[in-house]
Design a binder for these strands. Structure first.
Length: 108
RNA sequence: UAAGUCGGUUAUACGGUCGCGGGGGCAGGGAGAGCCUGUCAAUGAGGAAAGUCCGAGCGUUUUAGAAACAGGGUGCCGGAGAAAUCCCGGUGGAGGCGACUUUAAGGAAAGUGCAACAGAAAAUUACCGCCUAUUUUUUAGGUAAGGAUGAAAAGGUGCGGUAAGAGCGCACCGCCCUUGCGGUAACGCGAGGGGCUGUGUAAACCCCACCCGACGCAAGAUUGACAAACCGUUUCACACGGGAGUUUCACCGAAACGGUUUAACAAAUAUCGCUGGGGGAUAACGGUAACGUUAUUCGUAGAUAAAUGACCGUACACGACAGAACUCGGCUUAUAGACCGUCUUAAAAA
RNA sequence: GCGAGUAUGGCGGAAUUGGCAGACGCGUUAGAUUCAGAUUCUAAUGGUUAACAGCCGUACAGGUUCAAGUCCUGCUACUCGCA
């Protein structure tokens, strides 16, 4: 997942959180808002654990989002919020993302 | 062999595919600029990166300069080091059969405070008791052995002594003074003398000695407008203001006018600070050691919503604690498993 | 990243200089009042125990002291400030 696909600025985050819509699944919440580009950000708080755990979660989320980029037709800002659990796995995140993208109709 | 003691090392390894961070080479595009694209081979978290408990560099504040007070810190001796409350070696105390561990360890005879309850009394004490005289139950005197209270009761134990007792006398121990020897020193070992009122607490205030200005990379710097900085000229003045505890001293003047500086971007990192530094590894020499000196060699993260992941294969001990955010030296805390060495005790054998 | 603070019953919140920990309020439980309930009144209320005594107990682990919620050190959790 390259530099261009990342959501960075605080303005953008605030925009998405204030005006965006939400979808829920077992281990993920996604907030999205239409825009010019596809960009994704990840909100992982201290509730999820120490810095090692938090980095691990972000890596897994980035990896799973990367696999969906070619299939996404419309341009949106996404913010993913994982739910607090003891264990996380890539397959679980991929599954949840797939479900939510189908629900929202983001695929081509 | 068992139980222990102290110290050290390591922190999954190798290969393949996709992906990420910061650079580099090559090729192409472009007037030009890492401005864009492609490609190649390298490279990319720790022993604690953590806590932020100390110290230092570095930055800003007047170049942090002088003195006094306030505030804070440290406190056996010697050494190492840029420095430190750390580190190394020793001394005394405490614990352990021992290897060894541990220790904020100056001053209570400068002064002040506190010592609840209990007890007669908590610092020049006398309730019961004991003894003597008077007397028959008091009064006066002597005394601090015994009782009782307490965490602590006025050197301890024994013998002598006495009306009863008491360092009143003696012996041993403790304390203080003098002194000899050893040690750089803390101190140790010994000799002589003194009968030797004076509790504990300074991690209570405090005294003594030594040290410390404050704030921190979210420090701070650069680029636009308002403005600011610098330079020059003129005028005014010795007052006011300027340091993030206070006072005094030192130091720095103020205003007006003229000139010079100004590519883009406007973001809570656009650029700098931002990584070569008291660096690491190996060897030799000096030192008990911390460490020092010399030689050789290595080139080693620099992000900013913030880089290490996914999948597959092989091996085994089946992988703990855990993620750089200016840098370095210590401390403290978390930590699976494996390996190496040191010494001690007990048992057995020789 | 840097700096500062707080922690005491079920909850809020006291405890002067170190000297009997849990004042006070709320809640809970039991009893009384009532036909019943509310209100009111009384009692109990940290743990261990059937109960008493004793022991333990101020986030946790040590230290100083005769004695620690209080002083010192470490550590954990939470809160606040700084562009």
């Amino acid at each position: 997942m390259t530099f261009d696909y990342r959501l960075k600025k605080e303005k953008d985050f605030n925009l998405v959180f204030k005006k965006g819509k939400r979808l829920y699944s077992e281990s993920l919440t996604v907030v999205f808002f239409p825009s010019k580009q596809i960009k994704a950000g990840f909100a992982v708080s201290k509730k999820h654990g120490g810095s090692v755990k938090r980095n691990r979660i972000k890596r897994l989320l980035r990896e799973s989002f990367r696999s969906f980029i070619p299939n996404l037709g419309q341009n949106f800002f996404f913010v993913f919020i994982p739910k607090v659990k003891t264990d996380y796995s890539l397959a679980e995140f991929k599954d949840c993302m797939n479900k939510m993208f189908k629900k929202g109709g983001f695929f081509n």
